[in-house]
Amino acid sequence: MGIKIVINKIFSLLWVSYKIEANWTSIKNYLIYIIVRPTFTLLLMLFIFVAARSNQQYGYFILVGQAFYNLVGSGIMGVAYTLWDDREHYKILKYIYILPIKLPFYLMGRGMYKYIEGILPLFVSFIIGSLIIQYPLSQLHVYWLLLVLNYLLGFVWILALGFLIASIMFFTTQYGWIVIESIMGSLLLFGNIIFPSSLLPFPLNVVSDLLPIKVWIDLNREIILGNINLEVYHQLEILALLSFAYLFVSWLLLNLSDRIAKKNGLIDIVTSH
């Protein structure tokens, strides 16, 4: 497949994803819709800091953690929920198989849209959040190149987690939400999002060390502050290794689940609607 064809396919998937997500309202309402929820989720967490009247550095810790965590949720939902929604709700999953693309590629495109879309609420909520905790934005010296690189690496492991959930989604209907919520809840608890994961008791802190999200969130904190040193580059290497390892394993699992689902006639089964 030529690079031009791949790019065209990705653009087509981004476009169809946008149409599916946004065609229920006007563009203005849609933009409000995608901003409101992540912003309030961030405020919900930031007010823990406001209530406890702690030092501003901790406010920054929660601000970056939760703002980027929202992006994670958006991306994972884009990949994993799509499989469930297409099969159970819109009943179009079987038609995806007759497209000139493979299922993982399709899910990747759908997830990519949600991940890109998440940038807008990320920026808006970050600015609102920093105003709420009165964090001086002038203290930030963002290394944009590294931030973009980290953003791209983020998509790799988010895609991996999406694939992982999607491979379970083939075999479940009512438990679909439970699987997604379990992963999201676990990432909030183990991901270094609103508190340092070192506070977790053993062996839960070890779980945290094995998750790419922990390194990813910490890198975002350092890169936005402008604290760039050799350790940051080392952490980027670790993140890249972890992310691609996750992606490889989850891709294998997704393909295996896909084969089993086809064999058992689960592709076009509708059980909950």
């Binding site: 823990i48 406890a52 702690s54 929660i62 009512q174 379990s182 809840g185 909030l188 609103i194 508190f195």
Partner: peptide, 29 residues
């Protein structure tokens, strides 16, 4: 379903309570 409905919110609540602990917030929080 019951186990999931109790266990899942517990993950989120635990994160919040750990955050309060990290902030050295009084027990009432």
């Amino acid at each position: 379903h019951y186990i999931a409905d109790v266990f899942l919110p517990l993950l989120g609540v635990s994160a919040i309570l750990f955050a309060y602990k990290a902030l050295n917030a009084p027990e009432i929080y």
